[in-house]
Amino acid sequence: MSQVEVRNVTKRFGRTVALDDVSIAFEDGGFFALLGPSGSGKTTLLRTIAGFHFPDSGSIRIGERNVEKVPVEKRDIGMMFQNYALFPNMSVAENVGFGLRVRKVGSAEETRRAREALELVQLGHLGDRRPSQLSGGQRQRVALARAIVTNPKVLLLDEPLSALDKTLRVDMQIELKRIQREVGITTIFVTHDQEEALTLSDRIGILRDGRIVQAGPPREVYNRPVDAFAAGFLGEANWLSEGALAGLTLPADPSGRRFATRPEALAISAAAPAPGMNAVRGQLVQRVFAGAMATCLVEVDGQPWKLIARDRDIPELPGDGAVWLAWAPQDTLVVPA
């Protein structure tokens, strides 16, 4: 268990710059999500920390050790792959014991620790099976057990849950979080699923074009995005056009800034809202009922806006679709233009 520190790392593949002067620290025992669109460099960053790539410049520390020139075999990491990458020619127990056997811990200890790891992921009874005889969720757990059995300094997860269907994914998220807490291992995981990032991690890093756009606790990144990309990528943002700013209480000088709201911060009504609230007029395009929650798509000054609220909190709306959208002034997002 160690702190991981990436300092000024640049990595090029041919002419493309995959990582552009990236500096980021991963706290000891923390659960860190790297989030970004495809091609943002998040996987490259993970694989560079793992040791599959060596940075062109910059340094990487795992614990007390500078590892930027150490190959992956010697970095003492645990990694979980998108497609699990279980060895099909070995049993589940052999898969989990592989890293221990490589470290020559002795067969008795290998068996004991492999069983412990399998019990941790609640698969103690399946050690003799082949990976091909397991379900997707079980394979996932085996891959996790295999990644942590050697007590690595850091656990790296490359889109670990993206191959699972939605219900199973939520179960695995909870399970992953439980095991991570139990083991206390520094965990870095890559995902393009923002909900997953918010659910699991205690810190988030948003990447774009090989740079870290913003890093911090999920709530902070969500509520105070540093730029329009971060605001739009983590959660959804309703942008206020310049013409709509008049009469609103804004937290900052509008010159050189853009303002937005989150869909869940809005209230919709047919009548003008109480004074003290920010409000804009809009035209209701669609109201989508989804059980407990409902989504309203509203056109505001030519911009598409979205509102998410409990369905019961949305009042009867007029037939002509002319509505007010209101939010508390402190819920306004501010980013540089």
């Binding site: 990458a85 060895f87 592989f98 050697t150």
Partner: peptide, 15 residues
Amino acid sequence: IDDDLIDAARSMGAS
């Protein structure tokens, strides 16, 4: 053979 298998083995310290 999936290259991820080789990567996985390497991540576990295999020569």
